[in-house]
C-alpha cells in the first residue's frame, strides 16, 4: 500500500527537476515574471509618485528627469502607473488561472476516470462551450451583466475551462488503464484518492503547462477587455487600461501606451516560454 500511496510531489519529478540545469530562456522568463510579481506586490510603494495623483495643468508630457516615462493627459506619472498596474494586470489572470485549473482538473479527472454517462454529459456541455466564440460571448456577457472585473474573471474562467477539461480527460483515460492505477483499484482505494493522489501527479506536467497558457490567455483577454473599457473602472492603474486611455496621446507621449503594451507582451511571452520549458522538463524528468 505504501508503494502506491506515498507518491512524492509530481511523482518525484520536482525533485529530479531540481537536479537538472535550467536553460537560459527559462531563467530569463522566470526572472521577468518574478520581477513583475515583485512590482505587483510592492509597486505602489516603490513608485516615485502616487499613481492616481493628477496634474491636469501639466497634461501629457514626454519623459523627463522628473517623470522618467512622462505623464498622461491627466498629468499622472506613467512609470508609477506601470509599476502599480502590475498588480491588477497579473492578479486577475492568476485568479482566472486558478479557477480554470481547479475546475478543469476536477471535472477532467472525473470525466476521464468515471466515463459512462458522467463523461457523456460533461463532454456534450464542453462541446457546446467550445463552440461559442469566446471574446464575443465575453463582451456580450460583461455588457449585459453591467461590466465589472468580477464578471469578466468568472466568464473567462468558464470559457477557458472546457478546452482544459478535454486535455485532462484524455490523459486521465490513458493513465487509468495503467498498472499502477489498476493496482490501486485492486487494493480498494477510493476513486477520489486514486484520481487526486495517483493519477493527478502523473498528468501534472500538462496541467502546469496548461495553467501557464491560461495565465497568458487571461492576461491578454483581460487587457483586451480593459482596452474595450468594460473591465476595470477608469483611472485604475492597469496595463490594458493604460493602452486604451493613452493611445490618443501618441503625438504627445507615445511611451504612455507603448510601455504598458510592451509589458503585456513581455509578461505573456515569459509565461509562455516558462510553461513550455516546464512542460518539457517535467516530462523529460518522468
Amino acid at each position: 500500500m505504501t508503494a502506491v500511496s506515498g507518491t512524492p510531489l509530481f511523482g518525484g519529478r520536482v525533485a529530479r527537476l531540481r537536479r537538472t540545469r535550467p536553460g537560459f530562456l527559462t531563467v530569463v522568463s522566470a526572472a521577468v515574471l518574478a520581477l513583475m510579481a515583485l512590482a505587483a506586490i510592492g509597486g505602489t510603494w516603490i513608485a516615485p509618485y502616487d499613481p492616481a495623483a493628477q496634474d491636469v495643468a501639466l497634461g501629457a508630457s514626454m519623459p523627463s528627469w522628473a517623470h522618467w516615462a512622462g505623464t498622461d493627459d491627466l498629468g499622472r506619472d506613467v512609470l508609477s502607473r506601470c509599476l502599480a498596474g502590475a498588480r491588477s494586470a497579473l492578479l486577475w489572470p492568476v485568479i482566472v488561472t486558478l479557477c480554470t485549473c481547479a475546475m478543469s482538473t476536477t471535472l477532467g479527472l472525473l470525466a476521464g476516470y468515471r466515463r459512462g454517462w458522467v463523461d457523456a454529459i460533461m463532454m456534450r456541455v464542453v462541446d457546446l462551450l467550445i463552440a461559442l466564440p469566446g471574446m464575443l460571448v465575453l463582451i456580450v456577457l460583461v455588457g449585459v451583466l453591467g461590466g465589472g472585473i468580477g464578471w469578466a474573471v468568472l466568464a473567462l474562467a468558464v470559457l477557458f475551462t472546457p478546452g482544459d477539461i478535454r486535455v485532462v480527460r484524455s490523459l486521465t483515460m490513458a493513465q487509468r488503464e495503467l498498472a499502477y492505477a489498476e493496482a490501486a483499484r485492486t487494493l480498494g482505494l477510493r476513486p477520489t484518492r486514486i484520481m487526486f493522489r495517483h493519477l493527478l501527479p502523473n498528468i501534472a506536467p500538462t496541467v502546469v503547462a496548461g495553467a501557464l497558457l491560461s495565465f497568458v490567455a487571461g492576461l491578454v483577454a483581460l487587457s483586451g477587455l480593459s482596452f474595450l473599457g468594460i473591465g476595470l473602472p477608469a483611472g485604475t492603474p492597469d496595463w490594458g487600461l493604460m493602452i486604451e486611455e493613452n493611445r490618443t496621446l501618441l503625438d504627445l507621449n507615445p511611451w504612455a501606451s507603448v510601455i504598458p503594451a510592451a509589458l503585456v507582451t513581455i509578461a505573456a511571452t515569459a509565461a509562455t516560454l516558462l510553461g513550455d520549458r516546464l512542460f518539457e522538463r517535467l516530462s523529460d524528468a518522468a
Partner: peptide
Amino acid sequence: PYDSGGENVKAMQAVAA
C-alpha cells in the same frame, strides 16, 4: 456609472479626483 466608450471618461476621472 459612466459610458466607457464615451468622450467623457477622462473628464469623469478628473472630477472624481
